[in-house]
């Protein structure tokens, strides 16, 4: 009796543990199943590098290069904001702040990370976009640049908290060695701590990229939504995520348009997968390098 009970508990917990795996498999299967049929109508190369995205025209064109570029441009720009600010905050909070400052700053950064993306979108749409439009005298404030700013702010907490972890993994003994040899605080930080945390810091950046590239609601609200290859960062763009979100409702189920949206999702999934694998590999290597348990 007791044994059966024990077995049942074990089964229940095993089921919960494996549920993520099942969900992941399910998602992958659906993505491939629904995404691949588009390649019967359009070649893979044509699909990825085609420069016109007119899925509802007659005849339709399914070239997603503009939306890939849209994602790429916005992500890159966002990282120019998130990396310096996130890294700077991590360094200050972990290495320099007094305990009192740390007790304020850390929760603030975490709180920023907890704000729903719709609120960031709202903020970008109502405050940043009109501001840019009037200051830069551009036709619309809803453009790639606004997306960069808002997404950059959103990614700060990700970069900051992972970079902070990386700094905390640097053994205390390295700092002590540097101080004992007559190193001052800056030399210790720049020549010892940051290089030792280097791979952890690159993980922070990569995970920041995954966060930004997968963000949907905000870009849908602030980047203007034109599926064209932008000529400048002040042109409207439509990243991959917002393309799917905006068009899924109107695409007839089973139509080539429908399948092409799944194919975009598939490509996005593969991109983030690659980023996550790279991040994992780097952080593993780094932990080995520091002689920590993997």
């Amino acid at each position: 009796m007791y044994k059966t009970k024990e077995k049942i508990y074990e089964w229940i917990f095993m089921a919960t543990a494996f549920s993520s795996l099942i969900f992941l498999l399910g998602i992958i299967i659906v993505l491939f199943n629904e995404g691949l049929p588009i390649f019967k109508d359009v070649g893979v190369f044509q699909f990825i590098f085609g420069s016109s995205w007119y899925p509802t025209h007659i005849p339709p064109e399914y070239g997603i290069f503009p939306v890939i570029i849209g994602s790429f441009v916005v992500t890159l720009g966002a990282m120019f904001i998130a990396v310096p600010l996130g890294m700077g905050s991590a360094l200050y909070i972990y290495e320099m702040a007094s305990e009192k400052q740390r007790n304020i700053l850390k929760p603030v950064v975490e709180l920023l990370g907890g704000i729903p993306s719709i609120i960031f979108g709202f903020f970008g749409m109502v405050i940043i976009a009109p501001f840019l439009q009037s200051v830069l005298k551009i036709p619309t404030g809803l453009c790639a640049f606004t997306g960069m700013v808002v997404l950059g702010i959103m990614a700060i907490p990700v970069v900051c908290s992972i970079a902070e972890d990386a700094l905390s993994f640097v053994p205390r003994s390295y700092r002590e060695a540097s101080y004992a040899l007559g190193g001052n605080r800056w030399q210790t930080l720049i020549r010892v701590v940051i290089p030792a945390a280097g791979s952890g810091i690159s993980t922070a950046i990569i995970l920041g990229v995954s966060r930004v590239i997968g963000e949907t609601m905000t870009v849908l609200m602030v980047t203007g939504g034109a599926a064209m290859i932008p000529k400048s960062i002040f042109d409207p763009v439509r990243p991959m995520t917002s393309t799917i979100a905006a068009e899924m409702g109107e695409a007839a189920m089973g139509s080539p348009h429908y399948h092409s949206l799944f194919a975009i999702g598939l490509i996005l999934f593969l991109i983030t997968l690659v980023f996550n694998v790279i991040a994992e590999v780097i952080s593993r290597k780094y932990r080995i390098k520091l002689g920590l348990d993997v």
């Binding site: 390295y174 002590e176 060695a177 540097s178 040899l181 020549r191 030792a196 390098k289």
Partner: peptide
Amino acid sequence: GMVFQKPNPFPKSIYENMAYGLEIK
């Protein structure tokens, strides 16, 4: 100078470890 309980070379080359004290000077 100080030598610690657990050997604590930097995760750098042998030469870089040795040169560190002079370079920071």
